[in-house]
Design a protein around this nucleic acid. Structure first.
Lengths: 224, 224
DNA sequence: CCCTTGCGGAGCGATTCGCTCCGCTATAGC
DNA sequence: GCTATAGCGGAGCGAATCGCTCCGCAAGGG
């Protein structure tokens, strides 16, 4: 295209609308789970259904984009953590930032969208950065020795969704959201203290295997 | 009725069927959230829809019974914890047992069922027992001093639902369930170590208020 | 042997879904 | 101020799914 710019009528609003749509999709997904409907997402974003469908050709495409953005945020959180000089501070930044992302809400769309090569690549790089963070912390002796990077992943997945926040949203109580966020920050701090070396007693059972991660994003078998 | 007992044709199966129904309701609720359908529950329990509807007059009634059973289990867990002589062991028992109950899956039915007086009473007694557990642990100096009973409640709510287990169930991978349970036990152990006194650093923000608990089980406002 | 009793699941009306399509509003160029 | 038009909102479509009813059938008791 040689045309430098095709002026839109409301170019200023468009970008804000897009962010609102993604945020709305995330929130509705958290509150309604797999039951989330496009109508609810559009309403939450304050736009019409038509506006949503001009931006994304299908519901899956919206969710796919949402996933891609989330992967970007995770990668950034891990790289920011590595940028810290102190190994523990870097790990703590990764944990607190990742929890605050709240991407556990994206769980219900596993198997509903196609994973592009670009997304898989971002995921790989993100995992590698997280592994580096854990290795560095282990080497510095600040992370309890019996915790693996997979333990950390599953911990983040566990803390990445907030039943309290989801229910408050479902009941329309934005006045309590701030208190709920603070509560989750306290819980995250408790978990971080539990991760700190030295460990008072060893973790139970065997370290979790990698098989808990592979095949996690493939569609479920037809018989359901 | 003066008749002492009306013999059923399959009285032995009936009790097993009832347990299977409750377990199935719990599992399907965990996997499908509010979207859970009676057909899916009956299929999971291995019974017909008619069988389910002869036992419970409506879907809400089934969920209500499920909640009542869960409340019983929580109360038992708290009282078992108090039965321990060691304050820390008692608290740890309460936490690990409560997490394993997995009652976080019941979240989606908040506001869908009527809370009977009996259920409210059980809830009150359960809360009182949990408060006693926390007080005792504080008095013994084994629980970090800046954590409140509400922190503990919210922590249990956070750990009481397992995204990993839910997704595995959705994908029909029972072979990985044991590993997933073990992983959650490890995460619970990490959290317990984070709860142990002395605390390496104080928890962020103000202690959560009781308002995060009141009104939590009332139906959402009509405008949604 | 028949009769009672609990069981499974097809099917009902109602609801909700993803998505299309069209009338309307708000702006750009003149 | 006027017209042309790009972007917007939401009514409404067919399809799918929901909670629930009801009836034909299998499984023991007398």
């Amino acid at each position: 295209m040689t045309k430098p710019a095709r002026r839109a009528h409301r170019r200023v609003d468009a970008e804000a609308n897009d962010r609102a749509l993604l945020r709305a999709a995330h929130d509705v997904l958290a509150e309604d789970g797999a039951h989330a409907s496009v109508a609810a997402i559009a309403a939450r974003a304050g736009v019409g259904i038509g506006t949503l469908y001009r931006r994304y050709r299908t519901k899956s495409e919206l969710f796919q984009h949402l996933c891609a953005v989330s992967l970007d945020q995770w990668l950034a959180a891990a790289e920011d953590g590595l940028a810290h000089d102190d190994p523990w501070e870097g790990l703590a930044h990764y944990v607190t930032t990742g929890v605050a992302l709240g991407s556990g809400s994206l769980g219900p769309i596993a198997g509903m969208i196609e994973i592009t090569e670009e997304m898989a690549d971002k995921n790989t790089r993100s995992d590698a950065a997280a592994a580096l963070l854990v290795e560095r912390a282990h080497a510095a002796g600040v992370l309890r020795s019996d915790v693996t990077v997979i333990d950390l992943h599953l911990l983040l997945e566990q803390l990445g969704r907030s039943p309290l926040l989801e229910q408050l949203g479902r009941q329309g109580r934005p006045d309590l959201v701030e208190a709920a966020r603070n509560s989750r920050a306290r819980i995250t701090a408790i978990a971080l203290d539990g991760l700190r070396a030295p460990a008072p007693r060893p973790l139970p059972g065997a370290p979790p295997g990698y098989e808990l991660f592979s095949e996690r994003w493939e569609p479920p078998p037809p018989g359901t």
